[in-house]
C-alpha cells in the first residue's frame, strides 16, 4: 500500500452532529511532501475533517492510516500518532500562561521526555525557523496574531511531525499578518513538509498546493491541481466560489 510514498490515507470518513451530516464520505491519499489545500464554503466540514484525522473528533465511520498504521480505533496509541500529526489552529491556542519558548518546549518535555537542555535547544531552533527567536521570552498576550500563529507553527514543528494540519491558520489575521504566516507555510512546503491546509487564501492555494480539494455539503465536489481548476472549464462550482472572492476586488 505504501508503494507511492503515501504518508496519510483517509478513507470514507463520515461524521454527523445530531441530525446534521457534516462529512458524507471523504477519501484521499496524501503523498510525502505534498500540500493539499481544502477550500469551500463555511460549514462544509473542512475543519471537522482535519479533526477527524487526528481523532480530536471521532468519525462515525471511515478509517485513517498514518504510514500504514491505522489511527482510527488505535486506543491509547493515539497519543503517539498525534505527535506525528501536527496541528495549527485558527485561533492559535497557544498556552496562555507560558512564554513562546515554553509553549514550544512543553510537549518536548512532557510527551517526548527530553531533558531541559535538549528541549530548550530544539525549541529555539524551531522558533528560529519561524523567525521568532528574539521573542522566545514573550508571553502569548504580548505577541501579535501573526507572531502567535508562527509560534504555534513552531510548536507543531518541534514534534517532528510527518504531516501538519492547518485549520484556517490565517482567518483571524489582517492581510499583513496573513502574509507573514503564509510565507512561513510556503517555506515549509518548499522544504518538503507534508501539509493539509484548510484556507480561504486562494493566492496561497494556487501557488503552493499540489492539489486543491473543493468541499461542499460534506463531500469533495471537485479536485485537481491549481492549474487544472483555474483553467479547465469543467470545474464550474469552484470557479463560481472563487468568482465570489474576485467580484469584491472589482474583478
Amino acid at each position: 500500500m505504501n508503494s507511492n510514498n503515501i504518508v496519510l490515507r483517509v478513507e470514507d470518513i463520515h461524521k454527523s452532529f445530531g441530525d446534521k451530516e457534516v462529512l458524507r464520505g471523504i477519501s484521499f491519499d496524501v503523498v510525502k511532501g505534498e500540500t493539499k489545500v481544502f477550500i469551500g464554503p463555511s460549514g462544509t466540514g473542512k475543519s471537522t475533517l482535519l479533526r477527524c484525522i487526528n481523532q480530536l473528533t471521532i468519525p462515525d465511520r471511515g478509517r485513517v492510516w498514518l504510514d500504514d498504521e491505522e489511527i482510527t480505533n488505535s486506543g491509547t496509541r493515539i497519543n503517539y500518532f498525534r505527535q506525528k500529526i501536527g496541528m495549527v489552529f485558527q485561533n492559535y491556542y497557544l498556552f496562555d500562561h507560558l512564554t513562546a519558548l515554553k509553549n514550544v518546549e512543553l510537549a518536548l518535555l512532557k510527551v517526548r521526555g527530553m531533558n531541559k537542555e535538549e528541549a530548550r535547544e530544539k525549541a529555539l531552533t524551531e522558533l528560529r525557523q519561524v523567525g521568532l527567536e528574539d521573542w522566545a521570552d514573550h508571553y502569548p498576550a504580548e505577541l501579535s496574531g501573526g507572531q502567535a500563529q508562527r509560534v504555534s507553527i513552531a510548536r507543531a514543528l518541534a514534534m517532528d511531525p510527518e504531516v501538519i494540519l492547518f485549520d484556517e491558520p490565517t482567518s483571524a489575521l489582517d492581510p499583513e499578518l496573513t502574509r507573514e504566516v503564509l510565507e512561513v507555510m510556503k517555506r515549509l512546503a518548499q522544504q518538503g513538509m507534508t501539509m493539509l491546509v484548510v484556507t480561504h487564501e486562494m493566492g496561497f492555494a494556487c501557488s503552493v498546493a499540489t492539489e486543491i480539494l473543493f468541499m461542499e455539503n460534506g463531500v469533495v465536489a471537485e479536485r485537481g491541481t491549481p492549474d487544472l481548476l483555474t483553467h479547465d472549464p469543467q470545474f464550474t462550482r469552484m470557479k463560481n466560489f472563487i468568482g465570489q472572492f474576485n467580484s469584491y476586488r472589482g474583478g
Binding site: L56, T76, N79, R82, I85, M87, L94, L106, V111, M159
Partner: peptide
C-alpha cells in the same frame, strides 16, 4: 484541544 493535538494525555 491544543495540548491533546501535541500528544498529551
Amino acid at each position: 484541544i491544543a495540548a491533546q493535538a501535541l500528544g498529551m494525555t
